[in-house]
Nucleic acid binder design. Structure first.
Lengths: 238, 238
DNA sequence: TTTTTTTGTGACAAAATGGTGAAAGGTTCA
DNA sequence: TGAACCTTTCACCATTTTGTCACAAAAAAA
């Protein structure tokens, strides 16, 4: 099964784990198990689970502690399983960073509902994409330009560019396959009224290629010299 | 005054009670006082307070005990007043059913802020608790911003920020991976019509980083300078 | 091939920019 | 009111970025 939603079930009681697993697998989720806090933490850090069902009461490292420690590294959605009413306060009280809780004894149907609800919420709410605003991102093979973050990724690794380098690349990439001569580039990217040295453009192209090339040869190849005219951005076939 | 919001202030020190009463009356709340645990409990059970400010350290029945006993009968929102350090754990450690806490010595501004936030939360939440409540909490690895309580936790330790520092951080964190130039920040965070010195932003960023860094290097790293443009909030990989 | 034109490149000084500490101006509070 | 705190401004400094040039390399033309 590809792209399956992965859920980690953490409880010291084998019976409970088996129960949860059964119901959740019926919903096509992929279930992983952990029988104590330490195992849970290890697994949660190593894998990117879509959700974690976490019992509070466990010998050794308890659920709240696991939650705390995990939150220092990840924001995986967590649903707490609590034995009694009282415990709810502990979870609900402050900033443990849980997303929901379920009180035992729970009905399997309820668990499934909560899991679905939380998955729905977190897939749309996660901090990665809080805003509904359309993002300004240009994606090419080997090269991504995120204009919101002012970030350039070549083969998924960040390329650190200076402002002018960035603007030049962004300008060219906005109009792929279109050639610009040096005058146009000075006017559009440099916003000069009257021109400086046309060769300034060359120098920046040089530096840009250099930085891209350091990370991805393919990305660098996309800035193409058009002899006698200027430069253009072009998607090349490897 | 009809429909006034009633708050019970519990502390054995007369000075503290007077102080709290002063701040809160300025906000049009109706204040009642109790100088020890037993009186507090009696009053709290007889009246329907909208909120209780409860000191932990008191001769006789202490705050935690009062809270416990009260919780058997009522769900009145409670903010704990704690002296330094250790005590926070007892409250924050989720043993009791408190809703928020304030560490002494407190700033009046903070008290009023917390009181307002908790009143807002508990009035809209009624008995439906977690389900419908849209909590305004942003969680990142190493950093949590609880906009309800106006509290920032870096690696689960509280960071005490000034109002401007807090607003700046919150604003940036609300839109991760988005760069804002200094003008935008002045406009959005400072609400300036006409601009002041753009470098004011730098100074605040400096102090914000300083405070975060004092507690968590990883948290501080999330405020990223984008050279030639401005600042952004970004989740970094260690 | 040789010559001419155009582009790539390294070096370097000038300019721009952000970090920072201190001081001045405001605000809040006991 | 004065003290403590917060905010803003400013000037200095280190660092980064930029524009320019001279020369090497490459491509086109003769």
């Amino acid at each position: 099964m590809y792209n399956a939603i992965k859920i980690l079930v953490v409880d010291d009681e084998e019976r409970i784990r088996r129960l949860l697993k059964m119901y959740l697998e019926r919903e096509e989720y992929m279930i992983d198990e952990a029988e104590n806090g330490d195992v849970a933490l290890t697994k949660a850090l190593e894998n990117d689970y879509d959700l974690i069902l976490l019992d509070i009461m466990m010998p050794g490292k308890d659920g709240i502690e696991v939650c705390r420690e995990l939150r220092e590294k990840k924001t995986t959605p967590i649903i707490m399983l609590t034995a009694k009413g009282e415990e709810v306060n502990r979870v609900q009280g402050f900033e443990v960073g849980t997303d929901d809780y379920i009180v035992k004894p729970f009905s399997p149907r309820e668990v499934v509902l909560r899991v679905k609800a939380l998955l729905r919420r977190s897939s749309s709410t996660s901090y990665m994409q809080t805003e509904t605003t359309a993002k300004d991102v240009i994606v090419f093979p080997h090269l991504t330009i995120d204009n919101d973050a002012h970030r350039v990724l070549a083969d998924n690794k960040e390329v650190s560019l200076t402002p002018k380098e960035y603007e030049l690349l962004y300008f060219l990439a906005k109009s792929p396959d279109k050639v610009f001569d040096r005058e146009q580039l000075l006017k559009e990217v440099w916003h000069y009224e009257f021109f400086g040295d046309l060769r300034t453009v060359d120098t920046h192209v040089k530096r840009l290629r250099e930085k891209l090339n350091r990370i991805s040869e393919n990305a660098a190849k996309m800035i193409v010299t058009v002899w006698g005219v200027g430069y253009k951005f072009e998607v090349v076939n490897d």
